[in-house]
Design a binder for these strands. Structure first.
Lengths: 223, 223
DNA sequence: TCATTGTATTATGTATACAATATGCATGAT
DNA sequence: ATCATGCATATTGTATACATAATACAATGA
C-alpha cells in the first residue's frame, strides 16, 4: 500500500519552468546582455501565454539577471566594470564568511565530496571541456557553501556567482590559470581538513581576488 | 523652454505600487507572518486586478517577505530563530564590510548628515515615538551603506534589514537599550571621522551582535 | 462512530482580450 | 535638407475569462 508515492511533486508552475529556462539561456550566453526580452516573442517560442513569461521576468529582475524599463520592456542585464567590482566586493566578504563557517562545521562526508570534486576539477581541466570545468568549479564552491548550514548565505552566494558566470567562463578558457586554481583548491581542502581557519579564509580571499582581477579584465575588453 | 521637466516620471506600474503597499504592510505588521496573501481578496481591497497582485507577490517572494506554495497560494514569510540567525550571520559580515569601505570613502557631507541623524536618533528616543526612533536608526545605517558607493551592497543590506525590521521594532521598545545604542552610534561616528577602520568595524560588530541577541530573544518569545 | 466519497466552493494557474503607450516611418511644412 | 507632425504598428499594462486543483463539509455506508 505504501511506497508508491509516485512523486506528484513533479509539478512545477510554468512561471518556474520559464524562469529556469530563461535563466539558463542567459547564463549560457544564448541570451546576450542588452538583448530584449519580449513577452509575446518568448511566449510563442516557449509555447505558453504571456502571463507566466511576465512572472518569470519579475523573478529574473530580482535576481539581477534582467532589467525592466516601464512601458518599454525587459532586457538581459548588462554588466559594467563597476557593477562587477560591486558584486565582487560583496562576494569576497561572503566567500570568506562561508569559508570560515564551513571550516567549523563541515562534515567528513562533505569533506570527502569536496575532495572528489577537487579531483574532478583537476581531471576536467585536462579535457578542455569548458562546460565540465565550469561545473566542477561551481560544485566545488557550492559544497563549501552548503557546509555552512546557512541556506540564506548559500542562495546569496549562488546568486552572486550567477551574475559573474558568463564572464568567469571566459576566465576558465585560459589554460595558464589552471595550475593556480588547482593549487588553491588543494590549499582550501587542506585547510578545511585540519580546521585551519586562517589558512582557509586567506586562500579563499586570494582565490576570489584572482578571479576578480581576471573577470574585470574580460569585462574591460568586451565592454 | 527648459526647466519644466514636470516629472513624467510620476508613472509607476501598478505592480510596483502593489509591491510597495504590501511590503510596507508586512513591515508595519499589518500583515502578520503566516497570514495568507489571497489574490482576489487583495485585488478587491486595492482596487486592481489579479495580474499586478501576482507580479507583486513574485517580487515579495524574491525579497524573502512572502512564501508561495504552488496551487495553494502565498503567505507572509515566517521567521524561525534559525532563519534569523542565518540572516544575522550574513548581516554581520556585510555590515562590517560596509563600515570598512565607508571608513575609506565617506564624504564630509555624508559625515555631517550622519551626525545630524545620530542626534535625531538621540532626540527621538526621548519622545518614545517608536516609528520615529526606528526610522532614525534605519537612516543612520543607510547613510553608512550609501557611503560605500556600492549600490548592490546597499540593496542587499536594506533587504536584510527589512527582514528583521518587524522584530527589531520590539527591541527598540526597550528603553534600557537606548544608552548603549546612542553610545555605539557615537563611537561609529568618531571612528569614521578619524578613519579608524578597526574602531568602526569593531563597534559595528558589537552593535549588530547586540541587536542579534535581542531579536533572537524576541523571536523565541513569540514563536 | 468513523472513514470514505462526492460535491460545492474557493483559490490558483493559465490564456486571452482590451487599453494605453512607445517606436518608426512617411508626410508635409519651413 | 531638416525638423515636426501624424499615423500605423508593435509592445507593454491591466483586466477578465476559463481551466484545474485544493479545501471543507455533508452524505453515505460499514
Amino acid at each position: 500500500m505504501e511506497n508508491l508515492t509516485l512523486n506528484m511533486n513533479a509539478y512545477l508552475p510554468l512561471r518556474d519552468v520559464v524562469f529556469n529556462t530563461l535563466r539558463e539561456a542567459i547564463l549560457r550566453g544564448d541570451l546576450k546582455p542588452g538583448e530584449r526580452l519580449m513577452e509575446l516573442q518568448l511566449a510563442a517560442k516557449l509555447g505558453v501565454s504571456r502571463t507566466p513569461i511576465r512572472e518569470a521576468i519579475r523573478m529574473l529582475e530580482q535576481e539581477g539577471l534582467a532589467v525592466t524599463i516601464p512601458r518599454k520592456g525587459a532586457e538581459v542585464a548588462k554588466m559594467t566594470e563597476k557593477d562587477m567590482e560591486d558584486v565582487l566586493q560583496v562576494r569576497e566578504a561572503l566567500d570568506e564568511l562561508a569559508a570560515s563557517v564551513a571550516c567549523e562545521q563541515i562534515s567528513e562526508e562533505q569533506l570527502a565530496e569536496l575532495r572528489r570534486t577537487m579531483h574532478e576539477f583537476e581531471e576536467s581541466t585536462k579535457t578542455r571541456d569548458l562546460k565540465r570545468i565550469a561545473e566542477a568549479d561551481v560544485r566545488f564552491h557550492d559544497i563549501i557553501y552548503q557546509a555552512t548550514g546557512n541556506p540564506r548565505l548559500v542562495s546569496m552566494l549562488s546568486n552572486l556567482g550567477e551574475q559573474m558566470y558568463r564572464y568567469r567562463v571566459e576566465y576558465l578558457k585560459e589554460e595558464k590559470n589552471y595550475p593556480v586554481l588547482i593549487r588553491e583548491h588543494a590549499l582550501i581542502v587542506e585547510g578545511l581538513t585540519v580546521k585551519d581557519k586562517k589558512k582557509v579564509t586567506d586562500t579563499m580571499h586570494t582565490h576570489v581576488k584572482n578571479q576578480a582581477a581576471a573577470v574585470k579584465e574580460i569585462i574591460r575588453e568586451q565592454g
